[in-house]
Computed example of a mutant assay.
Amino acid sequence: MPSRHFALAITGASGAVYGVRLAEELLRGGHRVSLTVSAAGFAVLGEECGLRWEGEPERVRAALDAYFEGLPGRIAYHPVDDLFSPIASGSAAPDAMIVAPCSMGTLSRIACGNSGNLLERAADVMLKEGRPLVLVPRETPLNAIHLENMLKLSRLGVRMIPAMPGFYHHPTTVEEMVDFVVGKVLDAIGVEHRLFKRWGSE
């Protein structure tokens, strides 16, 4: 399959590992990734994954290059306040965008068309251009506002893939549970993978 371009956003919801693993798999497949991370997303990356990537853009880019070194794809970092980034324009819209994990605040602002930063603007671009947008909500319990916002976006064609691992493949590690969710995201954007055993397969 030819190389494709994906926008990936990491917010401050718990579950930063989903975004990191997704980036790894996309790069392993030789794809191009445009990454943006919210301020809270950087904090969660440090707290949950031990990844201290925050700082000036050049420092972040160096950290990303070191972490993903050896993978054939290309990753580009775009600061969340950079509204001049290519992914902020419909004329340079990526093939698909994924927000993993997606906080309820981010989901709400996307649902309202409130494009106050690059992450939200890039998601709005995907909606207006009719490109695939996938959100990985990570919150529990969900209140009526959360559910109404998800329904609103779902009716617009946004794919909702909650961070809900399956257990029919008998996972034995946290990594296997993470891979199940990441695999579901890859299915939604048409990227082949072998992250989990499919039901009925040998």
Rank of each mutant, 00 (worst) to 15 (best):
G55P: 08
R32S: 13
A63S: 12
G55M: 08
A76V: 15
L83S: 02
E56L: 06
V60K: 00
G70E: 06
T36F: 00
C49L: 08
I75P: 00
G30M: 11
F68M: 00
R59M: 14
G55S: 10
S38C: 06
E48D: 10
G41K: 00
A23K: 02
G30L: 13
A62N: 04
E56G: 07
E56Q: 11
S34F: 04
E56K: 11
A39S: 14
D81Y: 10
R59I: 15
G70H: 03
F84H: 14
D65Y: 12
R21F: 02
V60W: 01
A66L: 09
E69L: 14
P72S: 09
A63D: 12
V44W: 05
L83Q: 08
A43P: 05
D81P: 00
L27E: 04
I75K: 09
R52W: 01
A66T: 09
F68P: 03
D81N: 11
V37W: 00
V20G: 02
D81F: 13
T36Q: 03
F84K: 14
G50V: 07
G41C: 02
G50M: 10
D65Q: 11
R32L: 10
A40W: 04
S38T: 13
G29D: 10
F42W: 05
W53Q: 01
W53C: 01
V33E: 01
L64E: 03
S34M: 04
G46K: 15
E58G: 08
L64A: 03
P57Y: 13
R59P: 05
L71T: 04
R59E: 15
P86T: 10
L83D: 02
L26V: 09
R61W: 05
V20T: 06
L26T: 01
G29W: 10
P57T: 09
E24F: 00
W53A: 02
L26S: 04
P57G: 03
E54G: 07
